[in-house]
Design a protein around this nucleic acid. Structure first.
Lengths: 235, 235
DNA sequence: CGGTTGTTTGAGGACGTTCAAGTACTGTGG
DNA sequence: CCACAGTACTTGAACGTCCTCAAACAACCG
């Protein structure tokens, strides 16, 4: 692991509190790989051997309905998307249990591979690491909780509206321009709908003053979107 | 907090590693309340003031689509159900952020209220607590991940089948008798369907050799259920 | 026995998926 | 520079699943 990667790692909360000796040991036992698009970090069902940290690029957590699928084709869905600075599925690593989801590279980047056994050891021995791990997992739990909530009681266009609001987290009202950083197929899967239905949802939001031009989106009124998707403003 | 409650608390992994002095302090600053059915521990949006631990009884994590609901009536759903020995939504407490979900007593029981500030302090100062908190949150994350997966790519009857399998976790095949510990309305909400649709799902599973008599369920073949809902066996 | 509550059943409709066709947007080689 | 393929996105129609509403039914309790 080179100096730059090491510096990137240390900037992440989970590692920022570790003593230099530990960081250096991590840099020794761990390694960094540049990953091309669509590369698979691990499959669901695999036993975790590394804790994966995204130094750059993006990673999608996917899953497919395993085994004998009733309707023929195996369906697949994107559960979560992680960015640079995020840690990919610590739960499986810390508990030493098989992954529930697969991880696939969405945008090529550099991924740090840190040995799972050493991470579990750190959890036992290092106060700061254990604390930051708990806080990180707490944040990740809230991400999933929000997703599940959206999935269970909001319609497809509402979920799209929520996504748009989530990428304009700073502003509370007024007009805004944003860029969508995902292709439609992936976004549709993440939001829990078919690509066709995403298209229709996009068309539907036009009535609310939301206009798509490729990946650029212009929103006339943030407040109007909030009202539409019954946003509860909880972060 | 009396001796019995204190003993119950200490049997929970999250607290089992704490020194006696800390436990005693917890027993002093915290308290226990017997909660009747339908009592609300907290609402979504509230700031957490206590970490709630279930000494006995059951608690449902619910949420309603806040604000101006499009279709008129505010929809509500059960996201997760916790039992005796479980800790209710540590994430909000540890992060000191508003609850994303409300908690409601499903089955009356005794609930320990531990001051949130002290729990956050423990996370800073106590290695064992931080570690167990991380492990607990990791398990909770996996619960939600499995739910989200079910929600996104399984049909209503499949989700019911998965629920049945989850309460027969010991056996891998063969016939089984189980008891459902929830009323239909709550179960339906938890599984993400209307009570009517739960009824229909029950009727549908009869073809697979699953028979309901009140809350008692007899399953002819576990293996057949596994195959039906494309169970991937990941725990 | 009526009242209340919870479950079942049926009909109609809304939302979302699938399939199929059509359109726009890439890059490639002539 | 343009024809071409290949891909991504959109649009339309048919279908399926699930929800809603309404009524029938069962169970429980006064």
């Amino acid at each position: 692991m080179n100096q730059a990667d090491q510096a990137t790692l240390m900037a992440i909360p989970l590692f920022s509190d570790l003593p230099v000796s530990v960081i250096e040991h991590l840099a020794e036992v761990g390694f960094v790989q540049a990953q091309p698009a669509d590369a698979v970090l691990f499959q669901e069902g695999e036993d975790p051997r590394f804790l994966h940290v995204i130094l750059s690029g993006r990673v999608a957590l996917c899953c497919s309905a395993g085994g004998t699928e009733a309707r023929g084709v195996a369906r697949q869905t994107v559960v979560e998307i992680f960015n640079a600075g995020d840690v990919v599925i610590a739960p499986a690593v810390l508990l030493n249990r098989p992954y529930l989801l697969a991880a696939q590279i969405l945008e090529p980047g550099r991924i740090a591979f840190l040995p799972a056994t050493y991470m579990r050891e750190l959890l036992e021995t290092n106060q700061g690491f254990a604390r930051e791990a708990a806080l990180m997992l707490a944040r990740h739990w809230r991400l999933l909780a929000r997703q599940l909530k959206d999935q269970k009681l909001r319609s497809a266009p509402q979920r799209l509206a929520r996504y748009l609001l989530s990428i304009t987290r700073d502003q509370r009202s007024g007009p805004v321009q944003v860029e969508i950083s995902l292709d439609r197929r992936t976004l549709a899967s993440w939001l829990g709908m078919s690509p066709e239905n995403l298209s229709r949802s996009i068309a539907q939001l036009a009535e609310l003053g939301v206009h798509f031009r490729g990946r650029a989106v212009s929103i006339d009124s943030i407040a109007r979107l909030h009202a539409y998707c019954a946003e509860d403003d909880l972060v």
